[in-house]
Design a protein around this nucleic acid. Structure first.
Lengths: 356, 356
DNA sequence: ATGAAAGCGCTAACAG
DNA sequence: CTGTTAGCGCTTTCAT
């Protein structure tokens, strides 16, 4: 069927600003002004342009805009492990808040591997992201730090680095809360469990808080580094069967896991080897992922306000990008609280044999 | 007039191809040729250029390249819900395979809401993505379909649309497998459970498979649509307390949930209201998310080969983008299999009261 | 084998 | 208030 002679062009290629300009009978700058909403365009021309835009179904070419402005509206987001519910939830929130501020999130999953972290950041930088949100940072590369510092603003959410803005919980306090809970329940032989792939500065702070609190109460803290679902782990620096930590008269009866995934994995380990939780072993996690609230898991854990972290993180980096925040890195701390469920109780009576 | 006609680079802003050219004493075309690895550059000049690149730490400006080439190397990925472990795992795999093919993934979380799905796709299109991978698609907008069809290739992974390439499992078969399992265990009053926010064409196929199989065996299928953790649900079209379905002489004893998240939520519901799984109620899920394998969950489910889906999905769209695959949409089906765990058993004896 | 030149579509001074 | 003009940094013919 024939079209009207003066109808929209057959639209082989998308219309450019020039098409709109000639259609509206103005110059392309005027079209640009209308599109960007700058003040000082007569109501009359504005209408003409808008009508032309509509008729041609014109949409500005972001690529061209980005090239001339020398920056994108893309935010790079470095995620430790998307399969970890904590990161998945954070990623969701971050994307939502970024969108609300007019930015698009581009994720980059590092799997805790600092080589792919580096590669991912290179990619982000190559895409000319306006800023980078670290949801996890191994912090291994000094060269990267220098590169980043000169290129784009960075915000560390739920992790810590001294050369960028930080939005996080008080991890040390979280560690203390978890430890206090275990101690108050009567435990004296504790362990701190972490997963090497996810280890970062936050874990360290949680560990420190745990140790401080334990020492103040005369309790011991065994350090366990474990990659589930392996049978072996590094226990106080030595590779051993993980069961070793929970066996014998000096066995640990209370574990503070530096994140819920580790905690749930340990629970699973207990289920498999016949360690009852909490009868034989009390476990406290960190993060409060949705799964922790399931009746069958019922993990006592330290809750991070994920949504608030994401919102403040985005607020911070957007302010930094748009120049409203200048000067030294800013640290924003948000609250943590202990959520008591059923993975913790008093330790078994002395001499009691696990699984008995 | 050239911006920096000659002299050393002012070093404030990143070096351009012109800086490299003058440093190496060649033209910018030559630099471009070296960078893109085109054949027919003398070994000598190549070395000179490469050395200049290294000295200046030059890195091509992707934005400029994209502008002239009229396309990016960004792949848009539409995700139903990142907080759903199935999508999180898929997102991870998709990102990895995309990176392996030289593409960067840009995710867009829809929360099952077709308005934000539309908004997300607009954003993706505005970023001039080279293609879109749908990990979920509500498929509500006809206008969108037309827009997309003319703009970028699309591949539907683990979901179905007839106007783009599809890489998915045989959902109908999956539904049959789950249903057969329940029937063989002795169940005759079944239910199909889905979550309205996640409902899509895959769910429909799973439902059809379930109904077909049930009818062949003379079993009934109650249809339940539930938004956890609500107390009410839509049961065979009527809003009722969810417990209603599992109560009385005609109660359902076996549920096929169209995804594991729904299955686990139902399990949780059962735990809260005193319905024992599998004694009172057998549950089969779909997806086989990592959580399903936990001893405390032990969900019998239909496993999707996530990694294979992701790999083939990326393969397909990359071939489409790069012009090696042309013509009508292609459908690739990959296998499913039932994973038996402990959420299913024979139904309770007739007259047996749930929770008794 | 290399260089010159013409844009890609847009923004941002600066004139008028 | 609107138009003119000069690029953003790169790829890509087309000459040489």
């Amino acid at each position: 069927m024939a079209r009207r002679a003066d109808g929209p062009p057959p639209a082989r290629r998308p219309p450019t600003i020039l098409d709109v300009a000639s259609r509206a009978g103005v110059s392309k700058s005027t079209v640009s002004n209308v599109i960007r909403g700058v003040v000082g365009v007569s109501e009359d021309t504005r209408r003409k342009v808008e009508s032309a835009v509509k008729q041609l179904r014109y949409r500005p070419n972001i690529l061209a805009r980005q090239l001339v402005q020398q920056r994108t509206n893309i935010l790079g987001v470095v995620v430790g492990d998307l399969a970890n519910p904590f990161f998945a939830e954070m990623a969701k929130s971050v994307e939502r808040y970024a969108a609300a501020r007019g930015y698009t999130a581009m994720f980059c999953n590092t799997e805790g591997d600092s080589a792919s972290e580096l590669a991912g950041i290179e990619l982000l930088l190559a895409q000319r992201v306006a800023g980078i949100v670290f949801l996890a940072f191994s912090g291994e590369s000094r060269a990267m730090r220098e590169t980043l510092q000169h290129h784009v603003p960075a915000v560390f959410v739920s992790c810590h680095e001294d050369w960028g803005d930080v939005v996080a919980v008080d991890d040390d306090l979280g560690g203390r809360l978890a430890t206090q809970h275990l101690i108050q329940a009567g435990h004296t032989r504790l362990a701190f469990l972490s997963i090497p792939e996810l280890w970062d500065s936050s874990d360290l702070a949680r560990y420190d808080g745990c140790v401080d609190e334990a020492q103040a109460a005369g309790a011991t803290v065994t350090r366990i580094s474990w990659s589930p679902p392996a049978d072996v782990a590094e226990i106080d620096g030595a590779a051993r069967d993980l069961r070793y930590a929970f066996d014998g008269p000096a066995r640990v009866t209370g574990v503070f896991a530096s994140n819920d995934v580790a905690a749930v994995d340990l629970m699973e380990f207990g289920d498999r080897v016949g360690l009852r939780v909490p009868a034989d072993l009390s476990i406290v996690g960190f993060d409060d992922v949705p799964m922790a609230g399931l009746a069958r898991i019922a993990l006592t854990t330290v809750a991070q306000p994920r949504d608030e972290l994401a919102r403040r993180g985005i607020d911070t980096i957007v302010e930094r990008i748009e120049g409203r925040l200048i000067g030294k890195p800013r640290t924003t701390l948000v609250g943590v609280k202990l959520v008591e469920r059923s993975s913790t109780s008093a330790p078994p009576a002395d001499g009691f044999r696990p699984g008995g």
